[in-house]
């Protein structure tokens, strides 16, 4: 009976078990209504991208999932549990790690303090040794000030510190923005490795060529909602449509 009831829910009806399931999500900055019914699924263990122009609502979507938007409505289910009404700290403790677009590195903390700041919320997080193996530069710079490092190193720190906590879903907001190609490649390799280790990742990107090397599925965001979606395998056949959406 329990199984039958579970099967009736939309999440269970999806082809793979969903890590994250967003539906009819609305969000506001003050009076300004910016998300108009966002809806998408993120299957467990997959990398999903939100593509779209500036101002489409991609960052706001991640902020809403993380609970840092004050005014939001609709449904955000993480591992089957409704989180729309939870405060940000409870959402983090449920097992979602957030790497914001501005990276959120603390200037008044050293690299090590930044790395160790997020509390471990669930077992199964990466050890310090594994993190240093992934990001050897960080080990060299542990005592420097968090914002004294290069942009690329700060980006790696911002990703590294959410790996310790045991989060299973990572929200990465434009991790390659403004970085040199060699750093972009390194971050790409890191994300592939994280995917191989079983992390589920929502990636916000403007650079769909970068996204195409990593993602399983793409959602195109426009005007605060998802207007199209395709599997990465179908990217080439949709390339003209995508160019039109992104205006590139």
């Amino acid at each position: 009976m329990v199984d039958a009831a579970a099967l009736a829910t939309p999440a269970a009806a999806a082809p793979a078990a969903s890590s994250l399931s967003v539906s009819d999500l609305h969000a506001w900055y003050g009076e300004s209504h910016v998300l108009h019914g966002m809806a998408f699924e993120v299957p467990k263990g997959q990398v999903v991208t939100l593509l779209g122009r500036n101002g489409a609502g991609k960052t706001t979507t991640l902020r809403s999932i993380m609970g840092v938007m004050n005014k939001r409505k609709g449904s955000i289910r993480f591992e089957g549990r409704e989180t729309i009404k939870l405060p940000s700290r409870a959402i983090a403790r449920a097992g979602i790690g957030y790497c914001p677009e501005e990276r959120g590195i603390f200037a008044s903390l050293s690299v090590e303090e930044n790395l160790m700041l997020p509390p471990v919320v669930r077992p199964g997080g990466m050890s310090r040794d594994t993190i240093f193996e992934l990001f050897p530069n960080l080990k060299e710079r542990l005592s420097s000030g968090g914002t004294k490092m290069s942009g690329g190193e700060q980006q790696m720190l911002a990703i590294a510190r959410i790996l310790r906590s045991g989060a299973s879903l990572l929200l990465l907001d434009e991790p390659t923005e403004g970085l040199a190609p060699v750093i972009v490649q390194q971050i790409g390799r890191t994300i592939s490795r994280l995917k191989a280790e079983g992390y589920t990742i929502v990636l916000v990107e403007q650079n769909f060529r970068f996204a195409a090397t990593l993602a399983d599925r793409h959602y195109v965001v426009e005007g605060g909602r998802v207007v199209d979606t395709f599997l990465n395998a179908d990217l080439q056949s949709n390339i003209d449509k995508l160019h039109a959406y992104l205006g590139v």
Binding site: S88, R89, P100, G104, F106, L109, E113, N114, P119
Partner: peptide
């Protein structure tokens, strides 16, 4: 580390909350 959390919360409380603190 308690002090580091405090300094971080002084700088950006929203981000610190988003880590589960």
């Amino acid at each position: 580390s308690l002090g580091a959390t405090l300094r971080a919360a002084t700088e950006n409380p929203v981000m610190v909350s988003a880590f589960g603190i």
